[in-house]
């Protein structure tokens, strides 16, 4: 089946089984390896992408569901000012260890700050509660989010 959608700002079309996981389409058909498979059950958030600006777990999205929608992956975020702020903040806060979960946390951070530019600690914990990390104990990821909120202040309000 032909399915058209917008991927990282560009119109794309795939001819594929609509039941295929968006995760597989992004990785295998488009080579977007920043989208990771950590579980395939919607538990870990390593495959998080944005659909129409909202965070979702791409392992649970049949590609038939994205017809006509806008899909954004970490690769599509990479050149934005917002991403750069998150990148620098994660570096400085020590938010990264093994890194497998990191792009997912970047997506969750972006989605949170776009909606809530000045989140409290509880808001942050809730916003990243669908992303598992086994290395950091989360504390330094939360520091990274806080730092990004502070540093990007004006950016998030647009």
């Amino acid at each position: 089946m032909k399915i058209e959608f917008i991927l990282n700002g560009k119109k794309v079309e795939v001819n594929t089984d609509p039941a295929r996981r968006l995760l597989d389409v992004l990785r295998e058909d488009f080579g977007l390896i920043g989208v990771k498979e950590g579980c395939g059950e919607g538990e870990c958030g390593a495959c998080a992408v944005l659909i129409d600006g909202k965070i979702v777990h791409s392992c649970l999205v049949p590609v038939g569901n994205v017809k006509g929608k806008e899909v954004t992956t970490i690769e599509g975020l990479k050149d934005t000012e917002e991403y750069k702020v998150i990148h620098e903040s994660f570096l400085d806060a020590g938010s990264v260890q093994c890194g497998f979960c990191t792009p997912g946390f970047v997506m969750a951070t972006y989605a949170l700050l776009k909606e809530n530019p000045q989140p409290h600690e509880d808001d942050i914990r809730k916003a990243i509660s669908g992303n598992l990390c086994r290395c950091t104990g989360y504390s330094m990821i939360i520091d990274g989010v806080k730092l990004a909120a502070k540093r990007g202040e004006k950016l998030w309000k647009d």
């Binding site: 390896i33 920043g34 990771k36 970490i74 998150i86 990148h87 990264v96 890194g99």
Partner: peptide, 19 residues
Amino acid sequence: VRRFDAPEKIMGTARYVDD
């Protein structure tokens, strides 16, 4: 100091075996 391995991991360009 900033971790050497972090930038690629944040960007999602670090290659794990499945990549």
